[in-house]
């Protein structure tokens, strides 16, 4: 229909609404949040000096906490991947009764308050099977409990990430592999897994970062004993509680830089799920 066909009253009357007020509101709202994030980082950075950080790093306790954090996070990351890869595979490649329930259970650690996870772990190790394990290997209030506390939460994130990874990969290639003579296991190792490299990297980094920041469950389940179960978040808590804000901020910065490193890895390799890049 060209303009000549329009009824007389419509000619030249309609003006589409302008776009800028809408975009301005959207922009203001989102930039407020971004400003807050950047502001927080900036405040941390300007609060302390490199001298403070160095001094903090010289402290034996903080060195121990850094070492323990790095080791436990790495162990937690590896454990999480070992669990998340098969779990994600089964949850995305097979249908079975009760699958929805299992899927919901896998989300529990994500929605549960961290302190509750710690408390629940503590109680779990008071039950008969828990006590049996404790009688052989001491778990509660030891380094092992740190890893378990971190693992309980971090693994849930790794499982979610692997679920997304596997479900984004069409199973057609595996099916072809089956017709070519592969067992399910061979199809998994030779065809599916090589396609999930980026997903595994994302899941691992995410688990590592979650583990690094874990505090609540560790405080309850492992305690906050210096030179024993002290990880970096514990250090921040302990330093703050004695009023040593400088050291607390210095240690926080160490964690911020570590977190940034992980985020870079995830953004660079992770083209999946909630870390999907804008382009």
């Amino acid at each position: 229909m060209n303009k000549g066909d329009l009824p007389e009253r419509e000619k030249g009357k309609f003006r589409p609404k302008r776009n800028w007020p809408f975009l301005l509101v959207m922009g203001i709202i989102s930039s407020t949040y971004i400003l807050l994030i950047v502001g927080m980082m900036y405040a941390d950075l300007t609060f302390t000096t490199p001298g403070h950080i160095l001094e903090a790093l010289k402290s034996e306790e903080i060195q121990y906490a850094t070492k323990l954090s790095l080791i436990t996070c790495t162990v937690t990351m590896l454990l999480s991947l070992v669990v998340a890869i098969p779990t994600g595979y089964i949850m995305t490649r097979y249908d079975f009764p009760g699958k929805r329930l299992l899927d919901a259970i896998l989300d529990i650690p994500i929605i549960l308050p961290p302190l509750v996870i710690g408390l629940s772990l503590l109680i779990l190790f008071q039950t008969a099977p828990g006590k049996f394990i404790e009688s052989h290997v001491r778990i509660t209030y030891t380094v092992y409990s740190v890893v378990i506390a971190q693992f309980m939460v971090a693994c849930a994130f790794a499982v979610r990430t692997m679920n997304v990874t596997f479900s984004q990969i069409n199973s057609r290639q595996e099916e072809v592999a089956l017709t070519l003579g592969c067992s399910k296991g061979q199809a998994f190792w030779m065809i599916l897994l090589p396609q999930t490299k980026n997903g595994i990297l994302t899941a691992g980094s995410l688990a590592w970062a979650r583990a690094l920041g874990e505090f609540g469950p560790i405080l309850v389940f492992s305690g906050a004993t210096r030179m024993r179960t002290e990880v970096l978040p514990t250090t921040v808590f302990l330093e703050m509680s004695v009023g040593n804000i400088e050291a607390a901020v210095a240690v926080s910065l160490i964690m911020i830089f570590a977190g940034f490193g992980v985020l870079m890895v995830v953004r660079y390799f992770g083209n999946i799920g909630f870390f999907k890049t804008i382009d």
Binding site: R172, Q173, T179
Partner: peptide, 19 residues
Amino acid sequence: KPSERMIGYVPQDGALFSS
């Protein structure tokens, strides 16, 4: 099992092994 049937398969989009 599919692996025992000795049937060749050419799917719609090829589904070549991307790795």
